[in-house]
């Protein structure tokens, strides 16, 4: 919180004739990127290593947390609510100042890059909430996904429409009018539009019906089979572990268990605490 904010408190924030009630962004968009460093020998495709940090001046949420994804694999992060899963994703995406640790992608150290430049470096991110542009049409949402591309995006858009046919049907409709499942599909589609070399999904199945959830899982697996590495946070731990090549259990911002999906599913403690027996 800034000084001015402390001085003014909540004053004046009800008056819609002077202040726009739309929530502000949470990321400082004016931050410049620092230099890109060399990666390390034997790194996975993406690794956020030993990350510690929190929001603004607040306490650390992440404590020496490490998350990695190998090429062509699916990694999932599970854990209780408030464990810091979303925070870890944001940290990897540069939306949060890390106090310690580094993020390396494809042989480069990108810790100092701002989120915009991480998009350019090939990362695609679907946040947990507010992951579409509600007043823009589906097609425009996808176009915005491809904002950094200078080439023809028609092919990619056709691929996304193939993957999520409902989006093609609704392409002229405002995204805010879509159902929950359709929104999530659009959000994933938007992230795919940059043709990223890594896709990060934060709870893509949150708030959708079981049928739609299965469908979404199928699509995500299909995307991964296409060779795109995926890092995903998932509430439905069982289903997530079943498809995970690598799984991380986060508790209070720290790695509690790490292993392949199968290993963790067979781990008694993990089963008891997170998979409901």
């Amino acid at each position: 919180m800034s000084d001015a904010e402390k001085a003014f408190g909540k004053r004046g924030n009800r008056d819609a004739s002077v202040v726009n009630p739309r929530p502000a962004g949470t990321v400082d968009g004016s931050r410049r990127s620092g230099p890109v460093g060399p990666g390390r020998e034997g790194d996975p495709f993406l690794i956020g290593e030993g990350m510690s940090g929190g929001y603004g001046r607040g306490p650390d949420i992440l404590h020496d947390c490490t998350i990695a994804v190998e090429k062509g694999q699916i990694a999932v992060i599970v854990g209780p609510n408030g464990a810091g899963k979303s925070t870890a994703m944001k940290a990897i995406f540069g939306m949060l100042d890390l106090r310690k640790g580094s993020v390396r992608l494809d042989g480069r150290d990108i810790t100092a890059l701002n989120p915009q430049d991480r998009v350019k470096a090939g990362m695609g991110f679907v946040p947990q909430v507010n992951n579409i542009f509600p007043s823009m049409s589906c097609e425009e949402n996808l176009e915005m996904g491809a904002f950094i591309r200078k080439d023809d995006i028609a092919d990619t858009m056709a691929q996304v429409y193939d993957l999520f046919p409902i989006l093609k049907e609704k392409r002229r409709q405002a995204a805010g009018e879509l159902s929950g499942g359709q929104r999530q599909q659009l959000a994933v589609g938007r992230a795919l539009m940059t043709r990223p070399s890594l896709l990060m999904l934060d709870e893509p199945t949150a708030g959708v019906s079981p049928i739609v959830m299965d469908e979404l899982f199928d699509r995500i697996i299909a995307i991964a089979r296409g060779g795109l590495p995926i890092l995903m946070v998932e509430q439905n731990a069982k289903q997530a572990m079943a498809i995970a090549d690598k799984a991380y259990v986060l508790v209070q911002g720290a790695n509690a268990h790490t292993g392949s999906g199968k290993e963790l599913m067979n781990n008694d403690e993990v089963r008891r605490t997170f998979l409901g027996g």
Binding site: S30, P127, N131, F133, M136, E140
Partner: peptide, 25 residues
């Protein structure tokens, strides 16, 4: 235009605009 749509996108959702590579400044 792309820039115009970027403006609308920013006004819709600042963070997501950033995640799409739109420069807020």
């Amino acid at each position: 235009t792309k820039s115009g749509k970027a403006m609308r996108a920013y006004s819709d959702n600042e963070d997501l605009a950033l995640l799409s590579g739109i420069d807020p400044e």
